[in-house]
């Protein structure tokens, strides 16, 4: 049961197509797991549809229909794509990892915590985090917006508990120490539009190597 959803602003930005790639990746991954947000997104898409439908028409070039028919000539409408194979990671995330959780190329970042940075366009960054059960992520604040989507296990911080499918939205005001619950390692997708700021000395020194 997902309890922490995407904000209206994020879903609207995703619907309009204006989010940085890393944020789009997190939204697409959450929506794959959450029918509530899938329905909210569809309603926001309907705003785009209504705007399109009410545009003042700009005439197409002479022969545009025949040109388009030529583009599709000989192609029958495609069948629906097959359902994606079940897995820990939803399909959009698998496309960035090159497979499911087993394909992630983790790098240790200290304290048993591992991360893998995913390739996304400039402006925001995305990484996977692996936090052994019972382990804390170093206390940190945020310069921009950081979203954390849980894929496996669960973590708690000063605000609440977050399990598979839940999204935590942290902004500059939140200083928190997320701790993975005992049991399965907690695997999260974290995206941010600014470098993380760690409070402890050693994590701060490590930061240049974390690249985020």
């Amino acid at each position: 049961m997902i309890r922490h959803h995407l904000s209206d602003a994020l879903l609207t930005g995703y619907s309009a197509g204006t989010l940085p790639e890393a944020f789009s990746l997190l939204v697409a991954t959450h929506v794959s797991l959450c029918d509530e947000c899938r329905a909210r997104l569809a309603a926001l898409d309907a705003v785009g549809g209504a705007l399109l439908d009410r545009q003042e028409a700009v005439p197409m070039a002479e022969g545009a229909l025949s040109a388009t028919l030529a583009r599709i000539s000989g192609t029958a409408p495609e069948a629906r794509p097959a359902a994606p194979a079940p897995g820990l990671f939803p399909e959009p995330l698998r496309a960035y990892v090159g497979g499911d959780a087993g394909a992630v190329r983790w790098r240790p970042v200290g304290g048993g915590v591992r991360q893998a940075i995913l390739p996304t366009a400039a402006g925001a960054s995305a990484r996977l985090l692996y936090i052994p059960g019972g382990t804390a992520v170093p206390d940190h604040g945020h310069r921009g917006t950081e979203l954390t989507l849980v894929l496996q296990g669960a973590f708690r911080d000063e605000t609440d508990r977050f399990a598979r499918g839940d999204v935590e939205t942290a902004d500059e005001a939140l200083e928190h120490t997320p701790i993975a619950e005992a049991g399965d390692p907690c695997i999260c997708l974290a995206v941010t539009d600014a470098p993380l700021r760690f409070n402890g000395l050693i994590p701060r020194l490590l930061q240049p190597f974390l690249k985020i």
């Binding site: 197509g17 569809a42 549809g49 399109l52 939803p90 959009p92």
Partner: peptide, 29 residues
Amino acid sequence: ASVATWIFTIARNRRIDLLRRDRRPEPED
């Protein structure tokens, strides 16, 4: 979805390819 909404979603994705050249990951079907 209405037809207008469905066509909007296709156009939005093509617009991103055309003007931004970013990827925009899509939810699972």
